[in-house]
Amino acid sequence: MNANPVVSCLGTSALLFEAPGETSLASQQRIWTLARAAAAWPEVREAAPGVNNLLLSFTEPPKRLEPLETRLLGAWDEAAALPLDGRVLELPVVYGGAGGPHMADVVAHTGLSVEEIVAIHTAPTYPVYAIGSHPGYCYLGGMDARIATPRRKVPVIRIPGGAVSIGGSQTGVSASDGPSGWNTIGTTEMVFFDPTRDPPVLLQPGDGIVFRVAEIRK
């Protein structure tokens, strides 16, 4: 864990800012503030928040990185938390059964019953920290540590869009079919990404997700 922010380059295409300390909603809210500020800088093509970090891609790489680093660190020091004021999306989830093939692994790892896992999983409002991984996918904060389960040793080649899963101390919903190393515990239906919309994503940082029990299948 770094005590100070770290700025590093990703080739000549982008720069990565990593905030110090643990991942938290308060820190993430400052990342959003920083992203809004940096997106207006002339050499920045795009400011894309990650989990406790920020990627800045360049339109043209600057001749020297130091001035940009200095500006970034200064903006971070000044960045106040942007409060969570977005919309909250309620998603009905069918837990377990064919749509939640790895529920048994979460049960085995946590020692909790399916009902207890579902109750814990549906309790919080999960803030959307960032969008990434694949189009429209939300990195969520706020999962209860009691249901944390390590990622699978062998990733699943294809899990369907709508799969609700747990990977380490995080939970999420796949926005489209694709490979995943997480434990799929249920399924929901929602279109998270539509390129014909502006913006193309359903949820943005600052929005939130609540999972509701539609059904528990054995």
Partner: peptide, 12 residues
């Protein structure tokens, strides 16, 4: 090394 999810670009 612990790394949190972050944006990357081709070439990383």
């Amino acid at each position: 090394i612990e790394v949190r999810s972050h944006g990357i670009v081709p070439g990383v």
